[in-house]
């Protein structure tokens, strides 16, 4: 099986903390894998290891079959990333930010195409030519989504992507993820939102103290069962 994302005994230690212990994970194209867990459980560490932003203490992360540590730039061609709090360049407009990040990824879009991406991400038309310094967190998040979508990556790495979005925008984002996954895009999403995970995820993984303690297909659980399972692990 060709996994688009794979972690083999992935471990990350800091001088005074074990952030991730021996993670084994495989994600296929078109799959939406949601990582649930409390703050400090290792969700963001996992995403940062796949992005190559931090080096593993041991084990290896693979993107499209390439080891991340050996191909730190090449693997990013296949990845798009949305952090919990999308920070953009405040002196540039939303449109200029999208043009900049797209050009860095190798895409030179025409203005109409850029506007289209921003529109589909839910950014109001009146905001696209305003400087990002005047944006709310939710508006920045939408530009971040547009940046990720415009990259046409095989994998989306999302770290609390709906943080700061209003319910309508969150719902639209869920629909977007579903659409992208049906087109073959794999998604690894760290989230606290159990119901969103159930809604868009194909599998959920529960992390606790740097360890992936359980993995379930979302189809096998309803939202209440998932919540109960999550709370059980957290209380233990």
């Amino acid at each position: 099986m060709n996994y688009i994302l794979e972690a083999k005994e992935l471990r990350k230690e800091y001088p005074n903390k074990l952030a991730l212990q021996g993670l084994n994970l495989q994600i296929e194209p078109g799959e939406v894998f949601c990582l649930l867990g409390q703050n400090g459980a290792g969700k963001s560490t996992t995403i940062n290891l796949f992005l190559g932003f931090i080096a593993p203490t041991s084990g290896a992360a693979f993107v499209n079959g390439m080891e991340v540590a050996a191909n730190p730039l090449k693997i990013k061609e296949h990845l798009a990333y949305i952090p919990e709090n999308v920070m953009l360049y405040p002196h540039l407009t939303g449109l200029e930010n999208l043009a900049l990040f797209s050009s860095l990824a190798g895409f030179k879009y025409k203005e109409a195409e850029l506007l289209d991406y921003l529109h589909h991400a839910g950014l109001p038309a009146e905001a696209v030519r305003r400087r990002v310094g005047t944006y709310s967190k939710g508006m920045r998040q939408k530009v971040g989504i547009a940046i990720a979508v415009a990259k046409h990556a095989k994998v989306l790495l999302l770290d609390e992507p709906t943080s700061g979005l209003d319910p309508k925008a969150s719902n639209e984002f869920s629909q977007l993820l579903t659409q992208l996954s049906t087109e073959g895009t794999a998604v690894l999403m760290a989230t606290h939102d159990i119901f969103r995970a159930k809604e868009v995820g194909t599998r959920v993984g529960i992390m606790r103290e740097g360890e992936l303690v359980d993995v379930r297909p979302t189809a096998a659980l309803n939202a209440q069962e998932l919540e109960q399972l999550y709370l059980t692990y957290m209380h233990n």
């Binding site: 992005l51 932003f53 730190p72 730039l73 990013k76 061609e77 990845l79 798009a80 990333y81 952090p83 709090n85 999308v86 920070m87 953009l88 360049y89 990040f101 860095l104 990824a105 190798g106 971040g144 940046i147 990259k151 790495l157």
Partner: peptide, 14 residues
């Protein structure tokens, strides 16, 4: 400090 560096580098630039 603002977090833009990660987003920048995630686009595939060194």
């Amino acid at each position: 400090e603002t977090g833009t560096l990660k987003l920048l580098l995630s686009q595939g630039v060194s």
